[in-house]
Every structure is written in structure tokens, then in C-alpha cells.
Simulated assay, not measured.
Amino acid sequence: MIVTPSLQPVQIFREIWKPLTLLFVWDVVVTVTYFVLPFHAPELPVTLFGSALALFLGFRSNSAYQRWWEGRGLWGLMINASRNIARAARNFMPDPEATELKRRIVLRQIAYVNALRCQLRRIKPDVEVLRMLSRGDADASLERANVANGILDDTGRRIDEARRKGWIDTIQQAQMEAVLVDIANAQGGMERLKNTPLPYQYRFFPTVFTHMFCILLPIGLVETLGVATPLGSTIAGIMFLAVLAIGDDLVDPFANTVHDLPLNAMCRTIEIDLLQSIGDEAPPPITPDKHGILW
């Protein structure tokens, strides 16, 4: 996610130079053709087309942003639930004999959020997952089709083990299981966002109509703007293409691009909070890179 408050000209140019160049070349071609072979094009259809397209793109961008914000809200719930499960493990199991089990529950939660991060980004579980699990635990969880859910299931078994050993009672077990339910519900919401794209009509028609509009725009403006058509038409066209690109960038909040949620940073926040809750040394938080991007 780009978090820098100031504009980065290099980053902006990298994203817009291709459509900007294509638009400008097309606008120049239309302008030269008009002066060589004059033609007449009514302005009203282009105006109506642009107004309708702006509404269409606005609905699409709002839908994409709602998905992005819902993903951020679900990760906020995940952060809170992770803190809750660590606090419950610490406070419900003060017995010194439960220290190792309590520690394993906390480390497994850190492994769990990192495994979920990898699943949502469609990458293999990385070192952040494996270093928090013992060899046997890692082998069993990595064999599951849903690695994150496998880790969460085993956390539930660890909580049941604590109940069977008398370290917690059934009420405390139920309270901890309720937190695991919250975690599973948040994961389910994230998987729904990841696996359910916008309807095909929301993806196909705005793209087609926007490109058609950019093709027709200089034809409708050349009689009015004359030699300034390449400048005016290119600026107007790039605005519509930018709104189209905003929807594409936000529609999948877990796609592992510069516009998506900073899952690495949020997983590190969970890791810091949970390790400090059991008295372990925690790593520093992840900060934006030199381009102002927080991963």
C-alpha cells in the first residue's frame, strides 16, 4: 500500500506512461487527419457518452473500494482476535507447567496469520510461517489443503489439551473457542473476497466503454479545440482511464501489489504484540520502503 503523503513523480509516470502515450498518438492522428481531410462530428453524443460512462465508472470504483475496505476491516478483526487469544492463554493458564503449551498457542497464532497472508496472496508458506512451528506441527499443517485452517484446528486441539490436563475449565475453554470462531469467521470473509471477483459485467463493459470513449473523444473535440486537441483530449481521456484503473487496483485487496493491503506489516504487528505478551523479544515493525510503499 502506498502510504507516502507526497506525490512520487516516478511512480506516477511508471503507471501512466503507456496509456498516456497511446492516447496522445491517437489524438495527434485524429487532429492531423482533420486538417488534411476536414470532417464534421457532433459534440452532443460524446458528451452524453462521457456523462453515462462517468456514472458507470463511479459505481464500479465504489464497489471496488467497498471490497478493499471490507478486507481491511476483516484484518482489523484478525489483529484484535489474535491479541485476545494470546491474552486468554496467558491469563487462563498461570500454572508454570502450562508455560510451554501457552507459548505454543501464541507462536501458532503468529504462524497462522502468516499462513493466511500467503494463501490470500497465492504464494507458498514462507519462512515466517515455518519458523513459528515445530517440525511435527509444520508437517501436519502443511499437508492440509488449507494450511491456515490446519494451524487453527491444531490450536483448538491444544486448548482442549489444556482443559483435559486441568489447566483451564470448560468455561474458559468455551471463551477461547469463541475467539477461534471469530478468527475463522474473519478468514472466511477474506477467502470470500479473494475467491469471488466482481461480476463479469462490472469488469468487461466498463473497460470496453472507456476505451471506446477515448477513441471517440478527439473526434468530437477536434472542431472545437483544433490544434490543442491532443492536449485536451489526452488529459480528459487519461482521467477516465485513471478511474478505470482505480477499480482494477482496489478490487482484490490481497493481490500483492503496491495498491493492496499491507499484510506483511499487519502480520508483523500481530507478531510484535503476541511475542511481547509472553515476554519474548519482538522484531521491529515493518516500515515503508524508499518508494513510500508498505507491504
Score class of each variant (00 low, 15 high):
Ala242Asn: 07
Arg60Phe: 01
Val32Ala: 10
Ile219Glu: 00
Arg87Gly: 05
Ile235Phe: 10
Leu48Arg: 10
Arg90Gln: 13
Arg90Cys: 10
Val28Lys: 01
Met132Trp: 15
Val258Arg: 14
Leu55Gln: 05
Gly76Trp: 06
Ala178Thr: 09
Gly71Glu: 05
Asp139Gln: 10
Ile16Gly: 02
Met132Val: 02
Leu180Phe: 06
Tyr65Pro: 00
Asp260Tyr: 02
Leu225Cys: 04
Ala282Gly: 10
Leu241Trp: 03
Thr229His: 00
Pro96Asn: 10
Val251Cys: 08
Ile215Asn: 00
Asn91Tyr: 14
Pro206Thr: 05
Asn84Trp: 07
Arg104Phe: 02
Phe205Val: 11
Asp160Met: 14
Ile168Tyr: 00
Leu116Met: 14
Gln66Pro: 01
Val179Asn: 00
Val25Trp: 03
Pro5Lys: 08
Pro42Asn: 03
Arg192Pro: 02
Glu15Asp: 12
Gln172Asp: 05
Ile235His: 04
Tyr202Asp: 15
Glu271Arg: 07
His211Asp: 06
Trp69Cys: 02
Ile12Met: 14
Leu225Pro: 00
Leu275Cys: 11
Ile123Val: 15
Asn149Ser: 11
Ser61Lys: 10
Leu198Gln: 11
Asp289Tyr: 04
Phe209Cys: 10
Gly150Asn: 04
Asn149His: 08
Pro230Val: 01
Asp280Ser: 09
Thr257Val: 05
Val25Gly: 02
Trp26Lys: 01
Asp27Cys: 15
Val29Arg: 00
Val3Cys: 08
Val106Tyr: 04
Leu274Gln: 09
Gly292Trp: 07
Ala52Phe: 13
His211Val: 09
Leu142Ala: 06
Gln11Asp: 13
Ile2Thr: 08
Arg121Trp: 02
Asp260Ile: 02
Arg157Tyr: 11
Ala81Cys: 09
Leu130Ala: 11
Tyr202Trp: 14
Asn80His: 14
Val243Arg: 09
Pro45Ser: 03
Ile168Cys: 01
Asp126Ala: 14
Gly50Thr: 04
Lys194Thr: 12
Ala174Ile: 01
Leu120Met: 12
Gln8Asn: 15
Trp75Pro: 01
Val29Phe: 10
Thr33His: 04
Thr207Tyr: 09
Ile183Asn: 03
Thr210His: 06
Asp139Phe: 06
Asp154Lys: 03
Arg164Ile: 02
Gly226Thr: 03
Met1Ser: 13
Asp248Leu: 08
Phe49Asp: 08
Pro206Arg: 06
Leu55Ala: 15
Ser51Cys: 06
Leu57Asn: 01
Ser6Leu: 12
Phe59Ser: 05
Leu23Ile: 02
His259Gln: 09
Ile159Arg: 00
Pro94Leu: 10
Leu107Pro: 01
Arg122Ala: 12
Lys18Met: 12
Ser61Ile: 08
Ala52Pro: 04
Thr224Gly: 01
Pro45Glu: 05
Leu37Trp: 07
Gly232Cys: 01
Glu223Arg: 07
Asp248His: 10
Gly58His: 06
Leu274Trp: 03
Phe204Leu: 15
